[in-house]
Design a protein around this nucleic acid. Structure first.
Lengths: 345, 345
DNA sequence: TTGAAAGCGGTACCAC
DNA sequence: GTGGTACCGCTTTCAA
């Protein structure tokens, strides 16, 4: 085997072509404005380039240009192990697709893993992401400190999903849960449901806050009645509340998640009530294959969100002057088999 | 919003700490050998660093170090669109996992797409891969010219799957199809099959060549008889051949792919023959969920191959002196429901 | 038109 | 121990 030879540099090309290094640089970057290189010289240089198999050094270019057409993807948990049917996969689909379209490569930041499976952006004080011109961040276990620090550093990034951090405004691509929740209440009202209930998750992440805001607004706007503890911020889905529910005036329930809806169904079944016969149920979450029922629910356009994240990021990267803005992405409401007209008893 | 400020550099830190820039550099790279910085100075520097929020510049580092702990992944077709259940996914799983373990980040080269969905390594003469210290290549539509050029350039890379290119030896991580094919013939022979047939794909890619080599070797070694055109390199699975097969002495068939096996089954059924009642069938390919039968087949350890690819690559990258070697990865033979003892008629 | 030269931000060697 | 300094490969200004 030939011994490892040094990769050719511009100076080598220059020597071979009998010109100066800067001439080579100009030809390569196609700098036609400043200095028009005569066709003759140009040819010689180009020939030398292919002769020597010259390839520009990416690192050196970045150093000069402060850009390498590289976009980072940082997930706060490892991507692939869970990707098959979950959360990340569709986002990545859109991210990859759009990145290819706009001509950027993607860096998957994986080396920052800690033993507990969580991933960090900063490792011994250094921000790995800096390698890319900008990054898309996603993950449920978002580290808000790191987010704040990143924002303070003015590093260009977008987060998929809304994340509020005091003192920093994070550009996010977020599903419009509020709007979708409102739309779901609309469909219930349109069918004639007047008394409805709300079942909440014990989390107060932004996405749930959004759902609640949309729900409450719609209930108020439509003049519906909701006497459920869930709507007032108390945990519900207790045995007592279920008893109360089946005995009460409610004809429909809105659940924040499939998990809750499934639990609700079990509880109702135990009390001889069926869905949607006795009670309609709608879910404020995308439904995955494999759940026990075809829930009426909303659909998060994950792939589209991935694409939009790239668009937003590229905008920031290409024009650092503009501050990032968040993007609200509408969710579709998909009909299922768990909402019907109210029972008439 | 604060106006975009220049990121702090080592010289800024140095000034703030009242030391020289090289001292800063030493503290940061933890250069304890050459020059031990007194705890006092060290503190001052560290303080200045966190004060200013200094972050090392990746590009500059690469330029010096000629390494950025970045491994590339280039697929000759787009990854995600097909990834869900296919080919790429498991490889990526292993690649990501192992890269994380050894502390490298991954660059997904996506920017080189052409309108026809194919991806190229070289775009207007420049090799994007150069950005990473080394790359893993995969894809069915491997571009051999590019492979050759890459090898000629001495760029560190490994290919998943065997690829031969005249004049270059490509380091590959390859499933040991030959061995697995032999093992499958062994199991048939062990059951008492003496007359067997082979059904081939109309492709002559390396992976098929390997299967054929392993098959032929085993048939010879075990003294079995194979009079099928498939074994001699002619296309088979024609109507005539099927007629011949059901009338002939063969009690088992080895098919190169699930596709062929399925077709075979259809053809046999049309002739009133069943699998494995009349004829045993084994497949020289991993079987995906969703096929019509539980074929006896081999299993390509995709995830493991991904991990091994990273190991091989890292070895090349960290010691450029050593020439890359290919790695043969054993495949398991998994029993199904399509191989039985030979019919005794 | 073309070349010389000054950096981009770090690293590492070499005197002091 | 510490600071000065050459250089990594490329881009861009400035003279010639």
């Amino acid at each position: 085997m030939t011994t490892k030879r040094r990769a050719p540099r511009q100076s080598d090309v220059a020597r071979a072509a009998g010109v100066s290094q800067s001439a080579v640089s100009r030809v390569i970057s196609g700098d036609t404005d400043t200095a028009r290189i005569p066709e003759e010289t140009r040819r010689r240089i180009l020939d030398a380039i292919s002769e020597l198999g010259y390839v520009p050094n990416a690192a050196a270019r970045n150093l000069r240009n402060k850009s390498n057409r590289l976009l980072g993807v940082h997930t706060f948990e490892s991507v692939f192990p869970h990707a098959r049917s979950d959360f990340y996969f569709e986002f990545l689909l859109g991210i990859e697709e759009r990145a290819e379209e706009v001509g950027y490569d993607l860096v998957l930041f994986t080396s920052t893993g800690t033993r507990d499976g969580r991933r960090r952006i900063y490792r011994d004080g250094t921000n790995r992401l800096n390698l890319a011109d900008g990054s898309v961040l996603l993950g449920v276990a978002t580290n808000r400190e790191e987010l704040a620090r990143l924002a303070a550093e003015d590093y260009p990034f977008v987060h998929i999903g809304r994340r509020e951090v005091p003192g920093a405004d994070i550009p996010c691509i977020v599903p419009d849960y509020a709007d979708a929740a409102g739309a779901i209440v609309d469909t219930l009202a349109r069918r004639g449901h007047r008394d409805i209930a709300y079942v909440r998750e014990p989390f107060d992440q932004e996405s749930y806050l959004d759902r609640r805001a949309g729900y409450e607004e719609a209930v108020r706007r439509l003049g519906l009645t909701d006497r459920s503890p869930g709507a007032r911020g108390e945990p519900n889905l207790t045995e007592e509340w279920l008893d109360d529910l089946v005995a009460g005036p409610e004809t429909a329930v809105v659940a924040e998640s499939v998990r809750l809806a499934e639990e609700l169904r079990t509880g109702l079944a135990a009390r001889g009530a069926t869905i949607p016969g006795d009670l309609s149920v709608a879910v404020l979450e995308g439904v995955w294959p494999g759940t026990s029922a075809v829930w009426d629910c909303l659909q998060v356009p994950r792939k589209q969100i991935g694409r939009l994240a790239i668009d937003a990021l590229v905008a920031m990267v290409e024009d650092p002057a503009q501050r990032a803005r968040s993007v609200l992405v509408p969710c579709e409401v998909v009909p299922g088999e768990t909402v019907a007209d109210p029972r008439t008893d």
